[in-house]
Write a protein that binds this DNA or RNA. Structure first.
Lengths: 217, 217
DNA sequence: ACCTGAACACCGTTCAAGT
DNA sequence: ACCTGAACACCGTTCAAGT
């Protein structure tokens, strides 16, 4: 009879204690599947095979769950730093790596970009790398914060438009012949095109402001 | 006793029948004040001095209310078209006019940019004007949809970062001396800087692709 | 320390009933 | 045609009580 204290194998998903990290992992799985707006403390508890109220012993509220998940995903970001490559190529690589992460959890990232003003922080690897590259490119110290913010805003902006489908709509409605190689191909091109255009714009700015070349080391 | 059918003046706000347009106007007022996430069918009904269920006779559901409000605000967009000004100046004016509208209803616009992939449609005045300007600038027909989407994505992207506060955070955390003339000044500069950079980038692209000047007519 | 059931104050929406 | 009350199926969160 004491075996009855636990339901038979297969009905009980959780035989591991509730943890903050475990809650975030489960929440991310639900978000990836159904979107942020479908995430519910009650559903999350069900997914963890727990009582809804038990979650509140590990997490203060729902907003903290969303911030925790975003933070967990954010720390997964890694990029190789090609110190001796030209800054144009380094920006392209950084942005592409960031986009790869965004594609891994599109629903969460679309939400974070628009709802979490503090999702990308100046101390984050992405921001630090971006600042370092632009510094190496020869952007004057006085303009570095603004230029970094500009490039950051453009990258997250075009990514948001891609993740929420606006980019795809604009392309497919404007020219019905688009998308022959699939929407992913179009959006690869659009991302690349946007990067190239902003890079060209920066080159122009650097050329008028100085010698247009950063200190090589 | 028959006077009691209506509460005394001042307690009853609505003595005009419920309308679809009236619902949108009231919803916009609530959104401007408290944000989209605070809008509730029940609060909306209270603001209109109506029973919550009465709304459903004029509007199918809450999502339709949000789309209706966004559409109502979107049609307010107007810009002057300076046919004979250089395309750079025309883009700057168009983008600035659009930003002015966004500042009039920041909460709604931030929501629409990230949640309504169809908020800006290719038939809208904004999109049509943008396409016309880029066409006049000499962008080849084959690239016109992509370049328009690129400029549109960049403008809405930087606007989103401004409206949700991310831009301000990036600037103020990166350089503590920022904001001496107030955040609005900073964000004016950032918007202008982004526009100028993207325009310089387009100039570079046009220069390599052709004679770098559109047909004047 | 960790979990839980009941409860509270909300939601959006359906539906049958009123005028 | 337009409005309404009651009800349903949900929410996030508090709190007192259990182990």
């Amino acid at each position: 009879m004491e075996k009855a204290k636990r339901p038979p194998r297969g009905t009980r998903k959780r035989d591991v204690p509730l943890t903050e990290a475990g809650i975030y992992v489960a929440a991310l799985r639900l978000i990836d599947a159904d979107g942020v707006e479908a995430l519910t403390m009650r559903k999350l508890a069900t997914a963890l095979d727990a009582n809804p109220m038990s979650l509140y012993h590990h997490v203060p509220n729902k907003d903290a769950v969303l911030r925790g998940v975003a933070r967990m995903v954010g720390t997964q970001f890694r990029t190789v730093t090609l110190e001796d490559a030209p800054w144009q190529e380094r920006i392209r690589l950084l942005a592409t790596d960031f986009r790869t992460l965004a594609h891994r959890h599109p629903k969460l990232m679309a939400y974070s970009f628009s709802h979490q003003a503090d999702f990308i922080q100046p101390e984050d690897p992405f921001w630090a790398a971006l600042t370092a590259i632009l510094d190496a490119a020869g952007v004057p110290q006085s303009e570095l914060p603004q230029i970094t913010a500009l490039v950051g805003a453009v990258i997250t902006g075009v990514l948001t438009a891609e993740l929420n489908g606006a980019l795809h709509r604009w392309l497919s409605l404007a020219s019905p012949t688009v998308g022959e190689d699939g929407p992913i191909h179009d959006e690869n091109c659009m991302f690349r095109l946007t990067l190239d255009t902003i890079i060209t714009g920066l080159e122009g700015r650097l050329a008028t402001n100085g010698d247009g070349r950063g200190a090589d080391h």
